[in-house]
Design a protein around this nucleic acid. Structure first.
Lengths: 63, 63
DNA sequence: GCATTATGTCAAGTATATTTTACATAATTC
DNA sequence: GAATTATGTAAAATATACTTGACATAATGC
């Protein structure tokens, strides 16, 4: 399912998908797919996203 | 680096690596490698491990 | 002592996360 | 209204998570 927590945390920081992708050193498509909920990122990428958005794993990736 | 939080949470439940592997439906080697800190599991596997050990992502995988 | 259990590790294979390139659309700004 | 920005999506290639099978060792219990 979609990750709306991540999408709104990104919006709160006024970052585009592309901005966040660059910070996390992944492609824009990867960020897009994670928000869309298509797939299953690695924990290191999740941690990188959390740090960029000033959130924790539980806040963004725990149900 | 080693994931000692995970190792001790597993010990607290009195589960072997093999037990936990079966619960999470992965191989024993995968559990071993995660505890050893060699690698970068997917978030879905992390969540599965957390549930098996009654912990959250922040408790086991946040620094 | 022997059998069993728990763990470490390695090599080769398979599944899948991620990249790259590309095209499409809606919103915004000049 | 043309240019730019943000996003969705798709196909082919590459990197890497994970499996399988195997062997080694230490600890425990009979």
């Amino acid at each position: 399912m979609k990750n709306l927590k991540m999408k709104s945390a990104r919006a709160a920081k006024d970052l585009s998908q592309d901005d966040l992708a660059k910070i996390c050193k992944v492609s824009r498509q990867t960020i897009s797919a994670i928000e869309k909920g298509d797939y299953n990122p690695t924990i290191n990428l999740c941690i990188s996203i959390c740090k960029a958005l000033d959130k924790t794993l539980d806040e963004l990736f725990w149900e």
